[in-house]
Design a protein around this nucleic acid. Sequence first.
RNA 1: GCGUCGGUGGCGGAGUGGUCAAUCGCAACAGACUGUAAAUCUGUCGCCCUUAGGGCUACGAAGGUUCAAAUCCUUCCCGACGCA
Length: 413
Amino acid sequence: MEKFNFKITKKLDGALGRAGVITTPHGTIETPAFVTVGTKATIKGVSPEQLRDLGAAVVLGNTYHLYLQPGDELVAKAGGMGKFMHWEGPTMTDSGGFQVFSLGAAYGKEISKVVKITDPSLMIPERFDDSDAPRLANIGNDGVSFKSHLDGSIHYITPEKSIQIQHNLGADIIFAFDECTSPAEDLRYQEEALERTHAWAHRSLKEHLKLKEEDKKEIALFGIVQGGRDEILRKRSAKTIAEMEVDGHGFDGFGIGGSFAKEDMSTAVRWVNEVLPEDRPRHLLGIGEPEDLFMGCENGVDLFDCVLPTRLGRNGTLYTKFGKINITNAKYRDDFSPVDDDCGCYACKNYTRAYITHLFRADEMFAGTLGSIHNIYFLVNLVKKIRQSIIDSNFSEVKEQFLTTYKTNKKGV
RNA sequence: GCGUCGGUGGCGGAGUGGUCAAUCGCAACAGACUGUAAAUCUGUCGCCCUUAGGGCUACGAAGGUUCAAAUCCUUCCCGACGCA
């Protein structure tokens, strides 16, 4: 069985970017790569065969969701998440740290991971003051108390518990339990949360090494860098996580977490990747718009995951080289061209916009499948092109060319 | 022919004297979505003026009662059912 490792094959001149290969027990991942999100051990609406055929390399499942349903022990009994879901390639699981945010501070609110407001501190306090707002995740220093959205039962997740669940799920790469903070939080809170995330990272690492000793599973653990939008915190976090060790063992790679204001993202990523050691892979958690992918690759990110291709694909928004289109718009009813005439995906090679808009209008399940296949292909392939451009030393040209066309946003073309 | 019930916005269907341009659902139109509480959510949805707001035309048709009618009365048209 191949052990986890990461090799850099080419670096970007004058920037942090690089192309490389991650090896896992279930195959290799050529990086940079777009990781597809299969929260509940399925890419919503897409079969593993379809996923493989469109060129995806990795699937990311979720600790919290799989722990609640069907239960991590059942998944272990099935032979691990990959075997359970019939995905033979590399797998990852997220630790549940994002649910600390999405079911906590963001619960019932219009806050998302990437905020539109340039300066999140300008968010209207009354709107975001949630001290007594209901939430499904409540943070303590030792762990997080979750109230299940499925049946209301209470579950206390500690770093140790998250790692135990993840070892049961048995992915090739797992993440330390962290606290993804809201962009609306002030610096004082970000700092407090960061200390907690660091303490949890240490406990995660310790538990992981202990379990690895016991279960002999070839699982790699990534530590997560947080720190909000503050330079000092981000760099401190990167340094802390990078240097963190238990019995001489550190993290196998890194996650860059947290939520951002769109404009902050590139600086935050740069701050972190300037500090993180070069020889271990970096995963920018939950980010995946095309312009973000260029930004991340340029700034030394090796892995991205994002729900956007599947969520948008299911909801009728499709990527094209001219920007995103809403395929349910009336103008596509009699448009017999493919979604994107340059696209080589199954949906574009075989179906028209008219047909896909019909499927959406008729509430047919296949609509979401075709939309997801197209969007995943689009993003997976975009990152592959970026990777190739790093290898071919023409990243800037490829970026410039793509983004210029993409921003024209010629809807209807 | 007689009787009963009913005719409301693209459709279904509330409302049964003022707070009704008319609840709600569907359809339609548009928007949002970034480690998935999401095959979800939001907005618009009679016409005109630029939003707050204002004006106009509307609840089968035509008359009428009333300060005020989708709502009451009369006649007519149409539909369902019942009796001949």
